[in-house]
């Protein structure tokens, strides 16, 4: 940088040098904070990949855990937990999706400010509900009387993802141009036909994105399952109304609390499977979302 002397009309004073140093320091700190967050993510995923890769094999994915009273032994897999987790998540989504979409439809198509307020507030509270409290709620609702079961776990997960599905759906519904609705109304098309024939199809991609995100979220939830479906077993179950169903988060939690190195290794293996599924889901959702938003003319907040 060329030095500019004091005689120059735009010469840099000592005071400005000091202000510039502070400016650089603070901007550097903000950049460093961002790098730190990315580094933490990188280290975290890196650790899971490095530790999980040695455990991961075809057998790990298609075999059940060693049964009987064997603890701390190597071998076996988490096939039953993968099946179980998939089942729980599918049932949870099947419960939360219609309700969530209907709420979003109500908020965007029917509500008045007066009726929207309590609903929004309820959704905010649901969204902030600690998932362990969700778990204890479903315990009080279902498990205390009927015991742990797949359906109890799915209900708990549905409560967790309901606000998420509602919000993504609502965000997309708001992007469906108002003119389209007005035009449909002007043609004498009834409200429900407009919603079913114009609004929802226009928002389908966005709703699917919300579903993918919700699935990714539900797949990793552990706290609600701990109280509603905390079985750790070699059994495979596909009956959601029957006894508890083995699943991946509980496997990881149990293995991570274990004193045996062989089980720690399995925790990493299961964590790798889970995180791969979740990251894949998130990246897919992100790609879908940006396509949806482009299609509907959404601008990121930073460009508004």
């Amino acid at each position: 940088m060329a030095a500019i002397g004091g005689r120059h009309p735009l010469g840099t004073s000592a005071a400005l040098h000091r202000r510039r140093r502070i400016d650089r320091l603070m901007r550097g700190s903000a950049t460093a904070a961002a790098i730190l967050a990315v580094a933490i993510l990188g280290i975290m995923i890196g650790t899971v990949v490095v530790n999980g890769a040695s455990e991961l094999s075809i057998a790990f994915l298609i075999k059940d855990p060693p049964g009987g009273s064997l603890v701390g032994v190597a071998g076996g897999g988490i096939a039953n937990a993968i099946v179980g987790s998939a089942l729980l998540v599918v049932v949870a989504t099947a419960i939360a999706l219609p309700v969530g979409v209907l709420i979003a439809v109500y908020l965007t198509e029917f509500s008045t400010p007066r009726t929207a307020r309590p609903i929004r507030m309820a959704l905010d509270l649901l969204n902030g509900l600690p998932t362990i409290v969700t778990g204890i709620f479903v315990f009080g609702l279902l498990v205390a009387s009927h015991g742990q079961s797949g359906i109890a776990a799915s209900v708990a997960l549905a409560v967790v993802i309901l606000p998420l599905i509602t919000r993504t759906t609502q965000e997309i519904l708001l992007l469906v141009p108002k003119e389209l609705r007005d035009a449909a109304h002007a043609l004498g098309v009834s409200r429900w036909r407009t919603i079913a024939g114009v609004v929802l199809p226009g928002a389908l991609g966005g709703i699917l994105t919300g579903v993918v995100l919700a699935v990714a979220r539900a797949a990793g939830e552990t706290a609600p399952l701990l109280l509603t479906d905390s079985i750790f077993s070699a059994r495979t179950s596909i009956n959601v109304f029957g006894a508890a169903i083995p699943n991946i988060p509980i496997d990881i939690f149990s293995y991570s609390e274990s004193p045996f190195p062989a089980e720690h290794a399995k925790a990493w293996g299961a964590a790798l499977v889970l995180i791969a599924m979740i990251l894949l889901g998130n990246l897919t959702a992100r790609a879908m979302l940006s396509r949806q938003r482009r299609r509907l003319g959404w601008m990121p907040t930073s460009q508004r």
Binding site: A2, I4, P9, L10, T12, S13, L16, R20
Partner: peptide
């Protein structure tokens, strides 16, 4: 040029330019 000196010269701080 501002008083005969380029305001886009290297070494000219835009902060000082805007202050003047």
């Amino acid at each position: 040029n501002y008083h005969g000196h380029s305001i886009y010269a290297s070494g000219v701080d835009p902060v000082e330019v805007r202050r003047r």
